[in-house]
């Protein structure tokens, strides 16, 4: 199994001189199994470039796993050229909307409404199908086993674990560990604390010993003090989770949109300096970076 980052930015694309190194496209990760089956995490703007490179290999058979339907994770979908070309096969996976019960087809239908996009979803030429992801229900894509995990974010968000060819990888999508909504004086404080612990324990048991963790690490600890409940994690929380899980490699991603390459380099250097004893290897996700497992 190998994987490649095509978009590592959070919230909004940030092209420009300040972000040339790590890249300005929003979330998209390509995964290739040993058999060359194609699995894609999220369809941020990074998916456009990925799909362009696939044009010579058409017809393609892509499995796109959407973590959640915020723009930065679906915005590239209408710009995947292969969906307009007959013969291609695209299967899009994602959770259902809790209120309406709609499946992941809404990610395309909403974006392709007449006011917002010139082509309607019904006019797609490829064979596009949608699959609803269910909590705790594993599913299979070729030789890969996918385990979806519900993770805290302002909208339903699934992290996905992939097991394939004896290797494993987990991507959080967007994730903030729930903070205790009570203060120590409240009678519910301890009870809630225990619920959070139990939840983290169950998360850890699902992703234990993965080879690679790719985690939403939008904020530094200092920034986080003002960004609680925004739905994003910190570098520190990511490292803690990686340690608990016993992961071999950790990639920080979903870079904060105003974060320049220089700032990211400085943060990375600091993290390496402060975590020299860590068994897990630390990396910053970077557009174009490919990793073989």
């Amino acid at each position: 199994m190998k994987f490649k980052f095509w978009g590592v930015r959070g919230s909004i694309p940030t092209p420009g001189a300040q972000t040339n190194k790590y890249g300005g496209n929003t979330t998209c990760i390509e995964i290739r199994t040993a058999n060359d089956d194609l699995i894609i995490f999220d369809a941020g703007t990074g998916i456009h470039q990925l799909m362009q490179t696939l044009l010579p290999q058409m017809p393609i058979d892509a499995h796109i796993l959407i973590t959640h339907t915020h723009w930065d994770h679906i915005h590239g979908l209408p710009f995947c050229m292969p969906i307009y070309i007959p013969g291609n096969k695209l299967t899009i996976y994602g959770g259902q909307d809790l209120k309406t019960g709609e499946g992941i087809e809404r990610a395309l239908k909403v974006q392709m409404q007449h006011s917002f996009f010139p082509i309607a979803e019904s006019e797609l030429k490829a064979e596009v199908s949608y699959k609803t992801v269910k909590v705790g229900e594993k599913f299979f894509i070729a030789d890969a086993t996918i385990t979806p995990v519900l993770l805290n974010h302002p909208v339903i968000n699934f992290g996905y674990r992939i097991d394939c060819d004896g290797k494993s990888l987990f991507f959080t999508g967007d994730y903030e560990q729930q903070v205790n909504i009570y203060t120590p004086e409240d009678r519910e404080y301890l009870e809630f604390e225990q619920m959070i612990e139990a939840y983290v324990d169950s998360l850890v048991s699902i992703i234990r010993d993965v080879d690679v963790l790719i985690i939403d690490s939008s904020f530094t600890d200092q920034e986080y003090q003002h960004k609680k409940n925004w739905g994003h994690g910190t570098y520190t929380a990511a490292i803690k989770l990686a340690e608990k899980v016993g992961a071999k490699k950790l990639f920080f991603t979903h870079h904060e949109p105003t974060r320049s390459d220089a700032a990211l380099d400085a943060i990375y250097e600091e993290l390496l300096k402060n975590n020299q004893e860590l068994v897990c290897e630390l990396f910053v996700a970077q557009e174009g970076l490919e990793v073989k497992l």
């Binding site: 805290n152 302002p154 339903i156 903030e176 729930q178 739905g231």
Partner: peptide, 16 residues
């Protein structure tokens, strides 16, 4: 409701 919150976050609960 507390347990729900730990799993899906406040925003979704509020919405529901």
């Amino acid at each position: 409701i507390q347990r729900a919150l730990v799993h899906i976050g406040m925003n979704t609960i509020k919405n529901l």
